[in-house]
Amino acid sequence: MKKNRLSSSLQTGLNTQMTQEALAAQIYLSYAAWATSEGFSGIANFLFRHANEERNHMMKFLEYIMERGAKAEIEAIPKPPKDPTSIQNCFEQIFQQEIGNTAGIYKLVKMSFDEGDWATWHFLQWFVKEQTEEETLALNLLDKIKVAGGEKATSEALYNLDRDLQKEPDEAALAETKSAANP
């Protein structure tokens, strides 16, 4: 009896995305270690929390693949890129990494739609919303860094940013939650 409910292309794609989520966790972890070494404990705390979040995303893919009767393939995780050169560079790289994750999710959404795999399409909708949130959060942080002076931010501005990120929510408010009464 065939138990695998995923096409071979979706099985491969979901496994690839699972590895991409693991890499994202490693990037956040690596950048958190860098931020700690640079004395930015608030930024490091924020990045450590996001490393855990990305690992949870990886686990969602792992569980889904197995629930659908397919084989989860655990692959080697590529080494994270070099340490950032600045706080601005750190969040620019994070934003680019999130754009890459979004592209992978969108590819899977299209593939599941084209194949009529509605269970997988439905599963991926959570990730579509999550990636919108992740990109919005990264853009908001880049805006804050720009206001603080960007690459020329003063020590005081970076200190304040570090302090703010210690308690920054891990989620961004999305447009879908807004209304005329609650802009």
Rank of each mutant, 00 (worst) to 15 (best):
K2C: 02
L6E: 14
S8M: 14
S9D: 07
L10E: 09
L14I: 04
E21W: 01
A25P: 01
I27M: 12
S30M: 12
Y31L: 08
S37D: 12
A44Y: 07
A44P: 03
N45M: 11
F48G: 01
E53Q: 15
E53K: 15
M58A: 14
F61D: 05
M66A: 08
E67M: 08
A72W: 03
E73K: 10
A76V: 03
I77H: 08
P80Q: 03
P80H: 07
P81H: 02
K82T: 00
P84D: 01
N89G: 10
Q93A: 11
I94Y: 09
F95T: 03
Q96W: 09
Q96K: 15
Q96H: 10
Q97K: 13
N101V: 15
G104S: 06
I105E: 08
I105G: 11
K107F: 06
K110P: 13
M111S: 11
M111W: 01
M111K: 04
S112D: 11
F113V: 07
G116Y: 00
W118T: 14
A119W: 00
H122W: 01
W126H: 04
F127S: 14
V128Y: 07
E130P: 07
Q131M: 02
T136R: 12
A138N: 10
A138H: 03
L141G: 04
K146Q: 07
E151W: 12
T154Y: 02
S155T: 14
E156Y: 06
Y159N: 06
N160K: 10
D162K: 13
E168F: 14
A173R: 11
L174M: 11
E176M: 11
T177Q: 14
A181R: 03
